[in-house]
Write a protein that binds this DNA or RNA. Structure first.
Lengths: 153, 153
DNA sequence: GAAAATTATATTGTGCACAATTAAATTTGA
DNA sequence: TCAAATTTAATTGTGCACAATATAATTTTC
C-alpha cells in the first residue's frame, strides 16, 4: 500500500478542502435551526459565549471566538438591533465596550437548547467519535496557529 | 468516566466550533503562501480543479467545490482579470460558460506545487493521521449533506 | 504632569458565501 | 411547432472574515 510522500495538488487529496467543505456543510446544517431563532451561525456562537459568561468585552469575545473587531462590531450591532444584547462603555476603562445579554437574549437560551440535540441526531455519531474528531480538530487548529518553527526538523 | 448524552451549549464542547475555527486557521495558514501567488484561498481551490481538468463550465466547477454561481462568477472574473483564466460561452449550449486556463494560469501550477509541501511541514502529522482526519471530514460532510431522515431511529 | 507609547474599538475596503431573483437559451411535449 | 418547463449564469442583497487604518482613551516614562 503506497503512501505518497510528495503532497499532491489533487483537490480530493487535500485536507484543507475536506475541512473547508465540512465547515460550510456544518454551517448549512445549522441554518434551518438557527433561522427559527433568527440568528446567523456566527451570531449563535457569540450567544453561546455570552450564555456561558455575560458582560464580556468585545476583545474578550474576540479572543474566545478568534474573531477581530472588524467582524464582531457590526455583528454585535445587529444583535443589539435584534434586542438580544446591550453595548456600553466600561466606566473603569472607556476604551472597552461591555456586551451584556438583555432579558430576551438570556431567555433565548432555552429555545437554543434543542439545537445541539438536533444536530447530534443528524450526525449519527457515537459520543466517542464525536469527542475524538472534535479534539483532533482542536489539535489541528493549535498546530496551525503556531508560528512556523524552523528548529522542528 | 461520564459521557454526556445531553448535548451542551458550551462553546468548547461543540464540534461545530472546533470545525469552524480549524477551517479559518487553515485558510490563514495558506494565506502567506498564496499571497506569493496572488491568489486567495477559494481562488486556489478553483485553480486546483482546473489544473486537474481544464475547460469545465461554471456549474461543473460549482459541483466540484460545492459553490454556487453567486460565489463563482465574481471570483472567476477576478481570475480572468488576473490573466489566469479565460471565459467563453460554449457553442453547443450558449447557457454554459467554459472556463479555460491561460498559459499564465497553466504555468502557475509549478509555483503552486510547493504550497502543499509547506503546509504538510507545518502540520507535523503522519501520513496516516492526515489521511484519516481528511477521510473523517469527508464522511462528516456527507452525513451533514444528507437530508434529515426520520426513519433512521 | 505632559509627551510618547500602548491598548481597545471602530471604520473602510476587498473578497467570499449564499439566498433569492432575473434573464436567456435549450429542451420537452401536447 | 410553439408554448411551457427546465437549465444555466448572472445579478442583487445581506452578512461574515480579515487586513489596514483611524480614533480615542489609558498607561508609561521621563
Amino acid at each position: 500500500m503506497k503512501k505518497s510522500l510528495t503532497p499532491s495538488l489533487l483537490l480530493d487529496e487535500q485536507l484543507c478542502f475536506a475541512l473547508y467543505a465540512a465547515s460550510r456543510r456544518m454551517t448549512a446544517a445549522y441554518r434551518p435551526l438557527l433561522d427559527a431563532l433568527e440568528l446567523t451561525y456566527p451570531q449563535y456562537l457569540v450567544m453561546l459565549v455570552l450564555w456561558e459568561r455575560d458582560g464580556l468585552t468585545v476583545s474578550e469575545l474576540g479572543e474566545r471566538l478568534q474573531l477581530d473587531s472588524g467582524t464582531l462590531t457590526p455583528l454585535l450591532k445587529r444583535l443589539q438591533q435584534a434586542g438580544l444584547v446591550g453595548r456600553r462603555r466600561r466606566q473603569s476603562d472607556e476604551r472597552e465596550v461591555e456586551i451584556s445579554l438583555t432579558e430576551t437574549g438570556s431567555k433565548l437560551r432555552e429555545r437554543a437548547a434543542e439545537v445541539p440535540r438536533c444536530l447530534a441526531e443528524k450526525l449519527c455519531m457515537s459520543v466517542d467519535a464525536f469527542t475524538h474528531l472534535r479534539d483532533e480538530l482542536k489539535k489541528l487548529a493549535t498546530q496551525l496557529a503556531s508560528p512556523t518553527d524552523p528548529t522542528s526538523h
